Amino acid sequence: MRKRTRIASLTTACLLSLTSLTACANEVASHGGSGGGGKGTKVKIMVGGLDKVIYMPAMLTQRLGYFDAEGLNVELLTEPAGAQAETALVSGQVQGAVGFYDHTLDLQVKGKSVESVVQFSHAPGEVEVVSAKKTGDIHSPGDFKGRKLGVTGLGSSTDFLTKYLAVKHGVQVNQFSPVAVGAGPTFIAALQKGSIDAGMTTDPTVATILAKKAGRVLIDMRTPEGSQEALGGPYPSSSLYMNTDWVNGHRDTVQKLVNAFVKTLNWMSTHSAEQIAAKMPSDYSQGDEKLYAAAIKSTLPMFTKDGIMPARGPETVEKVLKAFSPNIKNADVDLDKTYTTEFAEKAAQQEKAAK
């Protein structure tokens, strides 16, 4: 990891506004969150699915008022997949993206300098589910050959992980068909209609699939143990990543962002799934509060308590990507430039001192 010493000017960039705000994000503004009110330093963050439990710290931080407490005016926007959040960041439409850490490696080999500044998780939080119609045919990723496999988007982290699991079990990436089906209702519909035979998704979609008996769990990576079994080590996934130049030029703002997120991660570690669910927008439960709380409970083990990159995590991610990606397989990735623990370590120390 890098320990920076350069002091940069604290300026705020004026960037293009996006139109993909969801009703949930608007609800936050009406609750006095930093999406409205115009107070504090303005920061736009694109999330690869605001209602996904794996990205829950983004909305929860806003609902808890921690952005406001740090003097920040954070506007949360959403896209259905992490790959689209990455695009918004690289194109300069937002200052930060909440998505999988693996995008930082993928972008580095494409000549982009992007880094994770706070790591939400040490496991993917992803689940490979098999359609109820195919439950007798698919028993492991070794059975992926010739199948239609759902992912949130092509080039997304679900796409990456699906390819790795296939290759690991002897199925080449050209021997199955990845199908972009998003998450939530679109994923479930694709599973039920037979548009996909299996697919990778997260909670609350997983909980809904099981409740509807539309499929069964094939591989569960919502816990560190599940990550170890499927991927061979800790797999840092959900994170806030930003352009390195922007981080260097706005260190004070980045520290405040990380402070807020670390407070949230710490809060999550001391509260129940039901208490967490009660803080989230009401429509996230889709009318079933118990099911939503259960989805959160199943996914909670994936989260870190301090926002610090887990030891050996970046190496696991690199190993996974090199297994199937021609671009990364032959590239010399500088892992130290894909993340920094500087801000999270300082925030964690502040949290410890406050207790």
Rank of each mutant, 00 (worst) to 15 (best):
M56N: 13
S269K: 02
R147K: 15
T11G: 05
T340D: 03
V317P: 10
D159G: 01
G92F: 04
T341I: 09
V181T: 07
E86R: 14
Y339W: 11
A294T: 03
S238N: 09
D143N: 13
V47L: 13
N327D: 06
A348K: 01
K193A: 10
A311T: 08
R63G: 12
V171T: 03
G232H: 04
M56T: 13
D252L: 03
G82N: 05
K44E: 03
K256S: 08
K322S: 12
K322H: 12
T223R: 06
L76A: 14
E274V: 09
Y284I: 03
T61S: 09
S17L: 11
L50R: 08
A207S: 11
T41R: 12
A347H: 11
Q119D: 09
Y235N: 13
M200W: 01
A29P: 11
P326L: 03
I276L: 07
F144C: 00
T244G: 05
K44N: 07
L64C: 06
V181I: 10
K168S: 14
E342W: 09
L257V: 15
L107G: 06
A293C: 01
T341R: 09
A260S: 11
A123H: 13
M268I: 07
T41Y: 03
L89Y: 08
K337P: 04
F303R: 11
K305D: 01
Q84I: 07
A81L: 06
A29G: 15
V206C: 06
R222L: 14
L300F: 11
E289D: 06
P80G: 00
S131I: 05
T205H: 08
A69C: 11
E86Q: 12
V114D: 11
F67K: 04
A348T: 02
A25E: 15
D143S: 05
M56Q: 13
P224T: 12
P236L: 12
K263C: 15
A344I: 02
K305I: 00
F176L: 15
K256V: 06
P80Y: 00
Q349F: 05
T341E: 01
A260Y: 07
A311H: 04
G170Q: 06
I296A: 14
N248V: 06
L105N: 07
S282G: 08
A323D: 10
R147W: 03
T244F: 02
Y55E: 13
E351N: 14
R147C: 07
A190W: 05
S227P: 15
L15N: 15
D159M: 00
T201A: 00
K279C: 10
N73P: 07
K112E: 12
V117T: 13
G99F: 12
V43Y: 04
E274M: 03
W267G: 06
P57S: 08
L165T: 08
T338E: 02
Q286V: 05
F120V: 02
M1T: 13
K355P: 02
G35C: 08
I188V: 14
T158W: 00
A207D: 04
E70P: 05
T162H: 02
